[in-house]
């Protein structure tokens, strides 16, 4: 019984670490655009780093039929786009100030983050 309890607690610790404490690997974008696949409940890549003060575009390719994946929101940038199934929806940015911009679906089940950093620091 003791072992089971320890296993259970370890599992809880694992959940906490995996979902909350773990910092995801960032995809650093050096080109002017990146394709983000929307499929199976996730954006991939979901964590994107781009240099500041440089025009670039996010291209969302929605392959997921679930209605949850339909709307893409970047609240801090006032972006709200409907993603068309099987096609790329392009969102252009010209001059983003450094910072973290979270993007997600209407219900926040799909989540991603756009990190804009000063060129020299990256």
């Amino acid at each position: 019984m003791m072992i089971v309890n320890i296993l259970g607690v370890a599992l809880i610790a694992l959940i906490v670490w995996w979902f909350w404490l773990y910092k995801p690997v960032r995809t650093v974008v050096d080109k002017s655009e990146i394709i983000i696949e929307v499929n199976g409940g996730v954006y991939s890549p979901a964590s994107i780093q781009v240099p500041a003060n440089q025009p670039f575009s996010l291209k969302f390719l929605r392959e997921d039929q679930s209605p949850c994946s339909e709307t893409l929101l970047i609240p801090s940038l006032d972006v709200s786009e409907q993603l068309k199934l099987g096609e790329i929806t392009q969102i252009n940015f010209t001059n983003l100030t450094p910072g973290e911009y979270v993007f997600h679906c209407q219900m926040q089940m799909y989540r991603g983050v756009l990190l804009v950093v000063e060129e020299n620091k990256s």
Binding site: W18, F19, P24, G40, G41, V42, S44, S66, M109
Partner: peptide, 19 residues
Amino acid sequence: KHFYISAWRSFLNHNANMD
């Protein structure tokens, strides 16, 4: 299938959803 695939992919992304 869609539940399991989505769950697995979310898991790999350190994410969890209804699926």
